[in-house]
Design a protein around this nucleic acid. Structure first.
Length: 1085
RNA sequence: GGACCGCUAGCUCAGUUGGUUAGAGCGCACGAUUCACAUUCGUGAGGUCAGAGGUUCGAACCCUCUGCGGUCCACCA
């Protein structure tokens, strides 16, 4: 064992330990011992912006997730934690644009699209490694071999695939919509990308002209040039007579417009605001737009994307910036004397979250995800969403509601399920196009020349489109990119290899051979489908219609060909015949009854009887091999696509068997025309990451991105896979400063993990973020708190140092001590006490982790470590001596328990003390608390010792007995037998000579506790407080307590209605209190 | 306007299905320094559980109302 320095110096160990972990490959689940038999456990890292720097929020997130993954890994799970970063389209482009503008004075338009994208990619590449290095600093045990980026090739393929599927299903559509337009970014913004800014605006009350019967109020008079209606509340009697009437209204002067205004009734109008009547401008207001949709009003576009007025605003106004147009309209209204009133009103103006520019609502042709459109629900080859059968017509909204409502996804804390439901219920179609240059380009092309009628339709394709498929003319890709959440919404499955090739095996329909019960393996003999068989295939074809099938592969046999033909015709896809899909060779059994063959072969899958070839028939092994061979080829050709493979019972059954490494016979032999769905990665294997690790177990993230991200993942995954993305959502709070303020650069109140990690150590930072945090609630953190946990890691270090410095049994050195090494006969009461405490805490700690109660778990273990172990047991051990085995047993388990919270200090100690051949603590097995022994007797006994020790110490303190003095202590107690067992301990810990007596000596200082009366001789010091006063105060308090207890027990209702155990407990309390009272009284006489 | 959260010791927070004389850490006060650790040890003070009603044998905990602080959503014509 190497010498351990007096204080733990984190910076001397952390980087080295992390590097050793990583090099060992232990973060990769497939490198864990016996990985194939471990149950998978998966969490994704919420991908930070690739250009981000580690901040305290990331640190909190990583600490929680690393606890989960380390705990599960030690607990025998096949633990996978996937790292990655997000391209964050709009945020990143903004940063780079600003940088270029500042450094070179150039705008994105000066550079051009290709150059800007190149510059952004260069910037991202230069920053991407920074955040990854910082994740390592936090000790995060991420599987870096699976690292993903939302804009890399694999993720792009997933994005285009989902888009294409949605497009084909009509879930994605293109339409005119009023959107939030940021003139500065020259882009559409989603509602989530808005902030609001309070401001005071001028509210003008006026009539469009003298003849118009209704006065309206507005803060934006220029938009009135695009009004098409006036809306009033349906129950507003002032206007009832006018509803439904239409007026031609000249507005804005001769160079203005003639408005066609209809008076409509709408519930969204507030009677009390303004005049209770509102001029409806469908093109430039969200609410007006919705009213226009409901009332079928036309939409007049008067403000352009450059913030200048358009032609439709009239010739005097066209071309004016909208603010100038506003002045001009107001001037005209004044000149015409139409303004009745002007007043200031407070409003919250929507602004761009990135650049703070005021947004303008305007209509634009955009791409949307339709959340109400019904589509056929996907069939999952793994774990179907429960309660929605494959093929069911559902909308995204319904699915999103369903999976949470039925608890297939649970949220911690639960109250966020309400927030989520509220969000889902109010969900509008999701605008997914962004007028940016950086991001996933929308995979849609348009024919330029449109030579045929068909050319008008947009062409959506996963692969690059070079020419128009209809006229072979030039095409142009849609210039927009996708909302960044569209790609991060695929995170759980795109990081696991999706899209796979989806293969739907279909066994041929009933054939004459099946009907006759005989076999055929001679391709030249043409047996046809029966009537029933054709009907079976027709039914299957109906189900297949909901799939997006690219091709049909068929066995060369007539029954395969006929089956394939029916399907291919209906689906309008080509058929390819492949000999590898042929019927099993039956040799001499060809033409015989199937029962004869079965009698010889039995269940080959179950019996592993793969090599027999009765009657020169084909072996099962051979059938498996040709199916694997077929899959190897097609899965490379059809990545991300769906194909139908029509074959026979045995070959399909053999293909199904390929996914099982140790065959169990739970694969049911396919019936005629039955569909069997499988997904394969590009190596033709179904045993890919997606199958092993999806759905994931936990998504841990901040509650602030519940709508943006969590909901979108649920949406995308349910749509694309027919599955939930994860089972549990754990939402942490925001990290705030000691005053509860958000940490920000401008306030300068941020705690930068990169500052405090070198100062206090990563473990201390992790502890400070884990203890005191409650899910969904914000966490306050200060440097003092981190310093406190630095002290704790040093404590653990010194506890270990003390234990490891003991001379012990050489044979036990560097060996795992098990329960068997501890013989009850050799254990003292104190030993039993600490072992019992360890058993309790190991269990409670594990249970708390299972319940995601990180704070309580950490506090519990800290109290055990610091109070029970360090302050009590180690002091006792010094007195009793010879604790080598017990101490090492406790320490080994303690290091394991602490490892998920404080990976570095525990691993460092472990490497010093116990690691054999450098084996890591991080892959040790979790303490088996079920095998640990509880000693309830010892716990009760030691509690008495603690009480007595504390009482004597308090007595010494109260009466100013010099610390060094060894004093004679007399004690009257009914626990003499138990206390005598630890007499040496009590003496040493209290620096006293302990004497058990029957009557407390007179003339001494006394204290009365539950265990009895303790006295020490008076010491000659001037300022000793009066013993009598102290005792009297204690007596009064006990008397008060007794009164309360008696009152309670005297209450007939209480005795009658409370559970017997509770009443019993109160009686016990009363008895104890009365004994204590008597002892004090005796002393005071 | 709608919804949600919080209010417990000077500060930060625990308090599991109602059954404690309401807990922890930090801070504070007093005392201790060769013996694992001063990044330490010992002892102690400190709370009408925001307020008012109600349910109950029993309320920090359940219900209603009020107050204060905070967050989110919608709207702001």
């Amino acid at each position: 064992m190497s010498e351990m320095p007096k204080a733990y110096e984190p910076q001397q160990h952390e980087d080295e330990i992390y590097a050793r972990w990583e090099e060992s490959g232990s973060f990769i689940p497939e490198n864990l011992p016996d990985f194939a038999n471990r149950e998978p456990y998966t969490i994704p890292v919420p991908p930070p912006n690739a250009t981000a720097t580690l901040h305290i929020g990331h640190a909190a997130m990583l600490a929680i997730e690393d606890v989960l993954i380390r705990y599960q890994r030690m607990n025998g799970k096949r633990a996978l934690w996937i790292p990655g970063t997000d391209h964050a389209a709009i945020a990143t482009q903004n940063v780079v644009e600003k940088m270029i503008l500042k450094e070179e004075g150039k705008s994105r338009h000066d550079l051009g699209r290709a150059e800007l994208v190149r510059r952004i990619e260069e910037f991202v590449e230069s920053k991407r490694n920074r955040i990854k290095l910082q994740f390592r600093k936090m000790g995060a045990s991420l599987d870096w071999s699976r690292e993903a980026f939302t804009l890399d090739e694999q993720r792009s393929r997933a994005v285009r695939r989902v888009f294409k599927n949605m497009f084909d299903d009509g879930v994605i559509y293109r339409g005119w919509r009023v959107i939030n337009w940021c003139p500065r970014c020259a882009s559409t913004l989603s509602d989530d990308e808005l902030e609001t800014k309070p401001r005071v605006a001028k509210l003008y009350y006026f009539k469009y002209n003298k003849d118009f019967p209704i006065t309206i109020a507005t803060t934006q008079p220029e938009t009135k040039l695009g009004d098409t209606a006036v809306a009033v509340h349906p129950s507003d009697e002032r206007y009832t007579a006018l509803v439904g009437k239409t007026f031609d209204v000249p507005f804005g002067g001769p160079g203005g417009v003639v408005l066609k205004i209809r008076v409509v009734a709408d519930h969204n109008v507030e009677k009390e605001f303004g005049t209770g009547a509102l001029g409806v401008t469908p093109a430039h207001s969200m609410i007006d737009y919705l009213m226009a949709l409901q009332n079928n009003l036309p939409l007049v576009h008067v403000i352009g994307e450059d913030t200048k007025m358009l032609e439709a605003a009239g010739k005097d106004y066209a071309g004016l910036p909208y603010l100038e147009a506003r002045e001009k309209v107001v001037a005209w209204l004044r000149a015409e004397n139409l303004i009745e009133k002007e007043e200031d009103t407070e409003q919250n103006a929507p602004i761009c979250e990135r650049c703070k520019t005021e947004i303008i609502p305007l209509p634009k042709l955009q791409w949307f995800v339709d959340v109400n459109k019904k589509f056929a629900f996907q069939k999952s080859p793994r774990k179907q969403v429960e309660g929605i059968a494959p093929g069911t017509e559902v909308s995204l909204k319904e699915v999103m509601r369903h999976v949470v409502e039925t608890d297939q996804i649970t949220m911690i804390p639960e109250r966020f399920e309400k927030t989520y439901m509220h969000w889902v219920d109010n969900l509008l179609d999701w605008c997914i196009s962004r007028q940016l240059w950086y991001g996933h380009r929308i995979p849609v092309w348009f024919c330029v020349d449109k030579k045929t009628d068909e050319c008008a339709a947009p062409i959506c394709s996963v692969d690059e489109v070079i020419v128009c498929p209809h006229c072979s003319g030039a095409v142009e890709q849609d210039p927009d990119v996708l909302d960044t959440w569209f790609s991060s919404g695929t995170w759980t499955f795109s990081t696991l290899g999706w899209p796979y090739t989806r293969v739907i095996f279909v066994r041929h329909g009933e054939c004459e051979t099946n009907a006759g019960g005989f076999l055929n393996s001679d391709v030249t003999k043409e047996f046809h489908l029966t009537e029933k068989g054709r009907a079976q295939v027709a039914t299957t074809t109906e189900m297949l219609a909901k799939e997006k099938v690219s091709a049909v592969f068929a066995s060369p046999f007539m029954r395969g060909q006929e089956t394939a033909a029916i399907i291919a015709n209906a689906l309008q896809v080509p058929t390819r015949t492949d000999d590898r899909l042929r019927e099993a060779g039956l040799g001499e059994f060809d033409g015989k009854l199937s029962s004869e063959f079965d009698a010889v072969t039995g269940n080959r899958m179950e019996s592993h009887n793969w090599d027999i070839t009765p009657g020169d028939s084909e072996s099962f092994r051979s059938i498996r091999a040709r199916m694997q061979n077929f899959l190897d080829d097609i899965t490379k050709e059809y990545v991300g696509k769906t194909i139908v493979v029509v074959s026979h019972g045995d070959p399909i059954w053999a293909a199904m068997s390929l996914e099982q490494s140790n065959l169990q016979a739970d694969l049911v032999y396919p019936k005629n025309a039955e569909m069997v769905v499988r997904e394969y990665d590009t190596s033709g294997s179904t045993v890919g990451d997606l199958n092993t690790y999806h759905p994931m177990d936990v998504l841990e993230t901040g509650y602030d991105i519940l709508p943006n991200w969590v909901s979108r993942m649920i949406l995308m995954t349910a749509y694309a896979l027919g599955e939930i993305p994860f089972k549990t959502v754990y939402l942490h709070g925001l990290v705030r400063d000691a005053e509860g303020r958000k940490m920000s650069k401008s306030l300068g109140n941020g705690i930068d993990p990169l500052d405090v990690i070198p100062k206090y150590g990563t473990d201390a930072v992790r502890m400070a973020l884990l203890i005191g945090q409650t899910p969904g609630n914000d966490l306050r953190i200060s440097e003092e708190k981190i310093a406190g946990f630095r002290n704790f890691s040093n404590k653990l270090w010194n506890v270990s140092r003390f234990i490891l410095s003991m001379d012990g049994d050489v044979a036990l050195d560097r060996r795992m001590i098990s329960r068997i090494d501890l013989d009850d006969a050799d254990l003292t009461m104190v030993d039993k006490w600490i072992l019992s405490r360890l058993a309790n805490v190991a269990k409670e700690f594990s249970v708390a982790l299972d319940e995601y109660d990180f704070s309580r778990a950490g506090e519990m273990l800290r109290d055990f470590t610091w109070n029970d172990l360090a302050d009590w047991y180690l002091e006792c051990a010094k007195v009793e001596g010879g604790k080598y085995t017990v101490l090492n047993y406790v320490l080994q388990n303690l290091l394991k328990l602490w490892h998920p919270y404080m990976p570095f200090v525990t691993e460092t100690i472990w490497q010093n003390a116990y690691a054999k051949d450098g084996a890591f603590l991080m892959i040790e097995t979790w303490p088996d608390y079920t095998s640990m022994t509880h000693y309830p007797e010892a716990e009760r006994e030691f509690a008495h010792v603690q009480n007595v020790v504390t009482a004597i110490r308090a007595l010494r303190n109260d009466y100013k007995i010099p610390a060094a003095a060894i004093v004679p202590v007399s004690m009257v107690t009914k626990y003499k037998a138990e206390l005598a067992l630890s007499e040496a301990v009590i003496k040493k810990l209290t620096r006293s000579e302990l004497l058990f007596v029957d009557v407390a000596p007179e003339g001494q200082l006394a204290t009365v506790i539950e265990e009895g009366t303790i006295t020490i001789p008076k010491f000659e010091t001037a300022e000793s407080p009066d013993e009598k006063i102290k005792l009297e105060a204690e007596r009064d308090s006990v008397a008060h307590y007794i009164t309360a207890l008696k009152e309670k027990l005297g209450n007939a209702d209480f005795v009658a209605r409370a559970p017997a155990a509770v009443v019993e407990k109160e009686h016990g309390k009363l008895k104890e209190a009365e004994e204590k009272f008597a002892a004090i009284e005796a002393r005071l006489k």
